[in-house]
Simulated assay, not measured.
Amino acid sequence: MEYRHLGRTGLQVSPLCLGTMNFGPETTEPDSYKIMDSALDSGVNFFDTADVYGWKQGEGVTEQIVGRWLEKNPGKRDRIVLATKVYGKMGDGPNDQKLSAYHIRKACEDSLRRLKTDHIDLYQMHHIDRGTPWEEVWQAMEQLVREGKVLYVGSSNFAGWNIAQANSLAASRHFMGLVAEQSLYNLNARMVELEVIPACQAFGLGLIPWSPLGGGLLGGALQKASEGRRASERIQKEIDKYRPQLEQYEALCQEIGQSPADVALAWLLHNPVVTAPIIGPRTQEQLDGALRAIEIKLTGDVLKKLDDIWPGPGGQAPEAYAW
């Protein structure tokens, strides 16, 4: 496993990040333990979760599963880089969500309790909060860092100008600011190439793509449909919408002898701004498949063909739409 620096930090993480969103709702707790064990044994040291995962308000179901795994395996805490998120609605009170200093402090304490750890390695803002000033956000995060409860701060679903605004103010406060951004990014969702990726490059953030397989669309959707496997209505609509591109894509993958899911991950890993796509395996087999993508080296010719099939916005702004 070749590890990568997380953005401009000295922290080294695996080129794949284990997403835990399925733990609880889709994957049983014992199976979740097995997946975490196997991921760590395979060299994946970057684990991502969120306080809202599990989708039972205020319970932090997925964080609790990760916490019980850590409690059963105390030696493994120092072998992983543990990331979680703050922003989502965790109660019925007016301050039980978003990024006020009040909520950040309480949410962090609650996540630490559920995760059964004394610190969070990467604490990520799950969404921009337009109602809270950055002075308040950074004051709260700085306090958590001083107390040793948080090591690094990241963002998720931020616009490029949000990153610029946040890190410019952080610099004026002599604080490190954001070191990573989690964004929707895959072959079929390339909008972040306009401004988010350039912002990450300029401010030294590592990009952590979520939904790298487009919710299953890029994971061999046509083949799975033809084999009679059940797919969600949403995926069926996506297949109908993108059928010509999917036919070309899956034919290209077959031509180079790689699975569509592996090619989609490998394509992301060819981008130097990308630190680690988030994989969310529901089963051990899905984890094993994702790990194979690390070894795939796509040629320039294949990369060009992928661009032709799944064109991006035309580069970064403003050249993508002006001159």
Rank of each mutant, 00 (worst) to 15 (best):
V302I: 15
N162Y: 07
V13K: 00
A322V: 08
Y152G: 11
K89T: 13
L184W: 12
E233D: 15
Y53E: 07
I279F: 08
K106D: 14
L99A: 09
T275W: 03
K297H: 14
I35N: 02
I309H: 11
S42C: 04
H119R: 12
I208V: 14
D129Q: 01
G257K: 04
W138H: 05
V44Y: 05
L205G: 08
M1C: 10
G88F: 15
I309P: 07
E147F: 09
S183G: 12
G91W: 08
I309A: 07
L252P: 03
W310M: 01
Q165D: 11
Q286N: 03
Y321Q: 00
H174T: 04
K98T: 10
K89D: 14
W310P: 01
W134G: 04
Y53G: 02
R130T: 14
H119Y: 14
L246W: 00
L217S: 05
L184Y: 15
G219N: 03
S155W: 07
P30E: 02
S172E: 12
G60F: 10
Q258P: 04
D240T: 14
P244W: 03
L246D: 03
S183Q: 09
G24L: 04
N22Y: 13
Q284N: 06
G58C: 07
Y242D: 11
I235D: 05
R146A: 13
S168W: 11
C200Q: 04
L252K: 05
A276K: 00
H127D: 08
R4D: 12
G60M: 06
L144N: 07
V179H: 03
Y87K: 03
T9Q: 05
V145E: 13
L178S: 08
V137N: 01
P74H: 10
Y242T: 10
D129R: 00
P313S: 08
E63L: 09
I294E: 09
G67L: 04
Q12Y: 06
R234A: 14
S259Q: 14
S183L: 04
R173G: 11
N73W: 11
A225R: 12
D96E: 11
S42A: 15
N45E: 01
F46M: 06
G60N: 04
G177S: 08
S232N: 09
L218Y: 07
Y185P: 07
E247L: 07
G148N: 08
S232V: 08
L99D: 09
L112N: 04
T28F: 10
S156K: 03
T27G: 02
P318F: 11
R130I: 15
D96N: 00
A140Q: 07
D288H: 06
T275R: 00
V153T: 09
L246S: 00
T132G: 03
M1A: 14
G7D: 02
G24D: 06
A320K: 01
D110G: 10
Q248H: 10
V81C: 11
S156A: 14
I296Q: 00
V66F: 11
Y185H: 08
L291F: 07
S111W: 07
H103P: 11
N157G: 10
F46L: 10
K149H: 08
A221M: 08
E195K: 02
R130M: 14
G312P: 01
D118S: 09
I279W: 01
T132P: 04
C253Y: 05
T20P: 05
V153G: 03
K241F: 15
S155F: 05
I65S: 01
W323E: 14
V44L: 13
N73V: 10
C253P: 02
L151N: 15
W134S: 06
Q245N: 12
Y321C: 03
L187K: 11
